[in-house]
Design a protein around this nucleic acid. Structure first.
Length: 562
DNA sequence: CGATATGACCTGATAGTATC
DNA sequence: GATACTATCAGGTCATATCG
């Protein structure tokens, strides 16, 4: 018996640290409660909570919310919120034991006399999370345990508070403010939704053509046995009416020419030389992202070696595009997937060193491709981030049905994805174009994997990960599922420089969820789709949520009046 | 080795929504 | 309509890779 226990990882981690009765607690069927604790939460518990005065309180709460089947993400959020706050509170009020912790401390915090620099929203979040723990534990303990157990564990109950959220109006206030912000931002994006999609296609085409031009040159060079570097230019006439000049390098030739070395693979890359207007020969703008490269904004740009004036210049530039926290080092184009956007050490260092505009095109092309795909899906279906990420290349997810009741028969293109709050797949209808572009991505992936199939990868987002198995997710690269952080970064990259302003003239920072709001508003107000249809398109259960989403924007109201 | 660039993993705030 | 839960989004820190 003891042996069985000692084999368990949680037992090894917690033995001798937390209360032993709590550690060995079992349910009616004789299963240990700690067995079902989510690994992520267990890790957090071990590294952050063990050793604190509230470790047993938190442990009991953790078991209760786990047994009551809250989602792993919720549990993690609750636990980390409360833990962070208790840490602050104990330090600020100089407490050392749980018995000293009572409602007066919390009251001081909630009224702002303790830790005045915290926001109302933080105070309110703590109260909500704390209340949730108390609620769950008290409900759980009275239904699951004998009287003796109840009285034993009562010493591990967080003290009840004589007030709840209703006593503090901060929540409603905070929510109203947030809603209003969201509303003005949606208002700015909605009228531009078609343009956003068009712009993303246009820019993707630009990069696509550049990649093709580069590959042609490379092919020719190899065929004719010409050594790099090699200058080339081509005309970008579709919109820009410019001729762009580049030099094709590889690391070896660049290294020889500039006397620098590399220990990594010999890859080709581009140097952007100049753009000229085809009519009058004046300098042109070139690609939309050149300034991002010039300022080295991909990834974490706020490095220690930056001179003050360089830093100032970047902050100003980012502020101009709506990144208000730039001064704190906000990194809008930081991605969290290798192989996307990131230019490589060689490129970045040498760009800086020789003041050249060097471009590692493939990571940019890949990023733009996924960004375009994501934008297509969100702007045509209003899908959430988590739904987007679920799209996989297999017959259970991608379904095409034929409707024979009309002539000629029409096809429906459907993704089967699990929406928020549910456990079964539902239908997401897509335009045919989305499906067509998906096969381009599949080809890109096959090429990059150098294989006739694409591999199954682990689901990346922590939220709902427990529902998602390893699959051939479309949003993947280099053997990894692309995560939500990356998606937002590449969307911002692809649409960078698109002017989207609120009525007050503030530049809006795009993110996936904002586009969902814009989609709903656009569908109801402009496309005149009935609200109950929009509700089902968005996979919402409650029509009042859809109504809030799709209420007319300020812009549309003023258009009507004007 | 030192400096810079990138990656992996952890933490936590805040927005959104299903449900009571 | 409020609450309780669930999702999105972002920042921090430390480890590792790259190159002089």
């Amino acid at each position: 018996m003891t042996n069985e226990l000692e084999l368990k990882q949680w037992y090894q981690l917690l033995f001798g640290k937390i209360d032993s009765a709590l550690l060995e607690l079992k349910d009616y069927d004789g299963n240990y409660y700690w067995d079902s604790v989510d690994p992520n939460s267990l890790r957090y518990f071990v590294s952050n909570i063990v050793g604190t005065p509230w470790q047993n309180h938190m442990g009991l709460s953790l078991l209760s919310v786990t047994d009551r089947k809250l989602s792993p993400q919720s549990i993690y959020n609750l636990m980390s919120t409360i833990n962070a706050r208790l840490k602050n509170l104990f330090a600020a009020a100089e407490l050392s034991e749980m018995v000293e912790f009572n409602y007066s401390v919390v009251e001081k915090y909630l009224t702002g006399s303790l830790m005045p620099d915290h926001t109302d929203r933080q105070r309110q979040s703590f109260l909500t999370a704390y209340g949730s723990f108390i609620f769950n534990v008290s409900k759980w303990i009275t239904t699951q345990f004998t009287n003796e157990q109840q009285s034993y564990f009562s010493k591990f109950l967080f003290p009840k508070l004589p007030f709840d959220n209703r006593d503090f109006s901060v929540r409603t206030k905070a929510l109203d403010v947030a809603k209003e912000t969201r509303k003005t931002e949606t208002s700015a994006v909605t009228p531009q939704l078609p343009e956003i999609r068009a712009e993303s296609h246009f820019r993707w085409n630009q990069v696509h053509r550049l990649r093709k031009a580069m590959r042609d040159v490379l092919e020719k060079a190899r065929h004719d046995r010409i050594t790099l570097p090699l200058e080339f230019s081509y005309d970008e006439s579709e919109y820009t009416n410019e001729r762009w000049h580049f030099v094709l390098w590889d690391k070896e030739s660049f290294g020889r020419y500039y006397k620098v070395g590399t220990s990594s693979e010999n890859e080709v890359f581009l140097e952007f030389v100049r753009a000229e207007n085809l009519d009058d020969g004046r300098p042109g703008d070139g690609l939309w992202f050149l300034e991002i490269l010039r300022l080295r904004l991909i990834g974490i740009w706020d490095q220690e070696y930056l001179e003050d004036n360089e830093r100032l210049k970047i902050v100003e530039y980012l502020n101009q595009w709506g990144y208000e926290d730039a001064v704190q080092g906000q990194a809008p184009f930081q991605i969290r997937n290798p192989g996307l956007l990131t230019q490589s050490v060689f490129i970045v260092r040498n760009s800086r060193k020789f003041d050249k505009l060097l471009i590692n095109l493939e990571p940019i092309y890949v990023a733009c491709t996924f960004a375009r795909f994501a934008l297509d899906i969100i702007t045509s279906s209003g899908a959430r981030m988590n739904e987007l990420l679920q799209i996989s290349y297999d017959k259970n997810c991608c379904i095409v049905t034929v409707d024979n009741s009309v002539t000629p028969p029409s096809k429906n293109y459907i993704y089967r994805l699990i929406p928020k709050g549910r456990e079964e797949e539902e239908n997401y209808y897509m335009p045919e174009e989305v499906y067509r572009f998906m096969s381009d991505i599949v080809n890109l992936l096959k090429e990059s994997y150098n294989s006739s199939s694409i591999p199954e990868v682990e689901y990346s987002a922590a939220t709902r990960k427990h529902l998602m198995s390893k699959k051939r997710y479309i949003f993947q690269y280099k053997g990894r599922h692309i995560n939500e952080f990356t998606i937002n970064a590449i969307i911002r990259f692809l649409l960078h420089g698109t002017i989207i302003q609120t009525s007050e003239g503030n530049q809006v920072v795009l993110k996936a969820h904002l586009l969902r709001h814009a989609f709903a508003t656009h569908a109801v107000q402009t496309e005149k789709i009935p609200i109950d249809i929009v509700k089902s398109l968005l996979h919402q259960k409650d029509i009042s949520v859809t109504e809030y989403y799709s209420a007319p924007t300020h812009q549309q109201i003023s258009d009507t009046v004007g």
